[in-house]
Structures are given as C-alpha cells and as structure tokens.
C-alpha cells in the first residue's frame, strides 16, 4: 500500500507540490477507500476504515477516535519509537545506499517488544514498550535513525538535489502541482519524471531546463550557511535571517534554503525489567538520554556567486543574525 500511495520520489517536496489541503496521507486515504481497493478489503472481511486508521494514524484520521487497541496497532505501524515503517526504511535505505549506519538487530527488537502501561502518576493507558533485554537493540535503532538522518537523508548535497528536483517539478507539472485524481496519480512514477528531466536538461526551451540541467550536469547550488551552536544561541532562526539577507543581496533565484527538525521524541518508552518493574527507558539508558535531536538549517547559493557570497557572509554575519525588534514579528 505504501508503495502506491507515495508520490514519485517519495517525500521530495510533497508539501510544495500538492495542492492546498493535500498531503500523501490524504492520497493514501483516497486510495484505501477507492472502489478497486474496497472489493479487496471485502474479500478479506475488513473495512477500508480499519486499514485507513492504522495506515495514517490518529494525526490524519479524524473521522473517529482511536481505541487503546487501535492506538497500539497504529503505533506498531507508524510510531515514533518502534514503528515498523521506520524499521523498514532504515534497513532498506541502508542496504541500497551501501552504508552500514542504518543497521540494527530488528529480529531481537521485535522479539522483545511489549505492550506496557506507562504508569506515569496513575495513568494506565498502554503504549508500546520493550523488555529490558531488548534495550540495547532499541538504542541501536534510535542511533541508526540519528546517523541515517545526519549522514544520508539530510546531507547537504543530497538535500540540494531534492530542492533542484522540486524546482524542476514546479516548472514541469501542470500548474506546478501533482495530480490528486487517483488514476493520474498512479500513472506518474519516478521513471516518467526522469525521462522528462533528461529531456529538459538538454533543451533550453523546455520548462524546468535550469534545475534539470543542474541535476544532470552536477552543477548544484553550494552550501553557504548551516546552523551552528554559536549563532542559534543568539537567534534560533539564524538560517532564516541569512536566507532573507542573501535573497536581498543576490536575488531570490540564486538562493535556496532547507530546514528540518526531527519530529516527535521516540527516546522515551516503558521498559519491563527482569523483576517485572516498569521503568522509563531514560532511567535505564544513558545512551538514549544523550542521542542528539536531528536538526538541519541550510542556505545554498548559485555556484557562480559562491566566492562573493562567502566573502559577504563573513563580513556581515553578526549583523544579519541579530534578532529583529519584537514588533516586526507581530
């Protein structure tokens, strides 16, 4: 289901390339509820809503509330700590990208998963937790996520190619958006887009020539600025300030920005010990207490302007990142 519900090139700029009010979760719901799928659900004696609820989780399924069991089942699929979606993509991406960061002992992890009460101050609602014996493999899952995000998914060069691809799609797609009609959505795939991208790279008259050519000829924008502890203590939005100033100085077409902060927490879950106590993972694991949060803020510049921009940044950075007066934010 996941394979057919995602847009071409998965999550690349789905927010910018889907019309207002759409996201891949809504597309997923439409596909699960389509006439073609309904007949399949009927055959296996489940309803489309049973599938939809678990597939998109409580954040996106608003038609009815989640019972404890439904919340647990949904957590098994999409949860922050032990969601099978995450386990799958880390292992698969690690394998296909040829890096070892994303690997962990998923057999041991799954064997030791348990449904446990959080027992916080009288609360008895159940959540997904783990046996103490599986704690180290849970640590390796969460470290794998950290390494894969910082070393691969959010590497600055990989991200700028996403941005060039998004720029290409914005120019190439009709009205700048992906279709949301199901058949049109299902017919458009990575291969169709790659073919058009190579065509556009070779022909200056075609829509999206510039970003396509940057991808094909590896002439990507260069990293001008990234968040750093010194600057964001002064201004947590320092990258935004640099982006704005760089746009004013070098023009909107020559500057791109990227921003991501890890969602949810995932490091805190109940652990059942050998003597049947239920403790917080953070009490038992110094590693989990100290896994950093993934956060990137990048500003990129047209390579032809890179040297000038670097000099400009060095001379002006302190003024640029000064927080503007509060009234300007209102």
């Amino acid at each position: 289901m996941l394979g057919i519900c995602l847009l071409p090139f998965s999550h690349t700029a789905e927010k910018e390339l889907l019309p207002e009010g759409w996201n891949h979760e809504r597309l997923t719901l439409e596909i699960i509820r389509s006439a073609e799928m309904e007949s399949i659900w009927k055959e296996v004696k489940i309803t489309s809503d049973d599938v939809a609820k678990l597939a998109v989780g409580p954040k996106y399924f608003r038609e009815s509330y989640f019972s404890n069991w439904e919340a647990i089942l949904s957590e098994i699929i999409t949860g922050n700590s032990f969601g099978v979606d995450r386990m799958d993509y880390l292992l698969r991406d690690s394998h296909h990208a040829g890096v070892a960061y994303g690997k962990f002992d998923h057999y041991r992890l799954i064997d030791t998963l348990r449904i446990l009460p959080k027992e916080e101050d009288g609360s008895i609602e159940p959540v997904l937790g783990i046996e103490e014996g599986g704690l180290h493999t849970a640590e390796s899952l969460l470290l794998a996520r950290y390494f894969m995000y910082t070393q691969l998914y959010f590497h600055s060069i990989r991200r700028i190619y996403d941005i060039h691809l998004q720029d290409f799609l914005k120019e190439w797609l009709p009205d700048g958006y992906f279709h949301t009609a199901l058949l049109d959505h299902l017919q458009l795939n990575d291969n169709t887009i790659l073919t058009e991208l190579f065509k556009a790279a070779d022909d200056v008259t075609l829509n999206g020539h510039d970003p396509a050519s940057r991808i094909v000829n590896r002439e990507h924008f260069k990293l001008l600025y990234q968040r750093n502890p010194k600057d964001f203590i002064e201004n947590p939005d320092s990258a935004k300030a640099v982006f704005k100033a760089a746009c004013d100085k070098f023009g909107l077409n020559n500057v791109r920005k990227d921003n991501y902060k890890q969602r949810g927490n995932g490091h805190e879950f109940p652990v059942i010990t050998e003597d049947k106590q239920i403790l917080s993972s953070l009490e038992l694991s110094d590693t989990l207490k100290n896994v950093p949060i993934v956060a990137v803020d990048y500003v990129f510049i047209n390579p032809e302007l890179y040297q000038d921009a670097k000099k400009w940044k060095k001379e002006n950075i302190q003024t640029i990142i000064l927080l503007k007066k509060e009234e300007n934010h209102e």
Binding site: P229, P236, K261, R263, G264, N265, I293, A295
Partner: peptide
C-alpha cells in the same frame, strides 16, 4: 510534540 522536540534541538 514536534515543537517540543524542535525546542530541544534549539537548546531551549
């Protein structure tokens, strides 16, 4: 929940 995580990333 995401914002609280982001605030941890921003050392707030």
């Amino acid at each position: 929940s995401d914002e609280l995580t982001a605030m941890r990333a921003d050392m707030l």
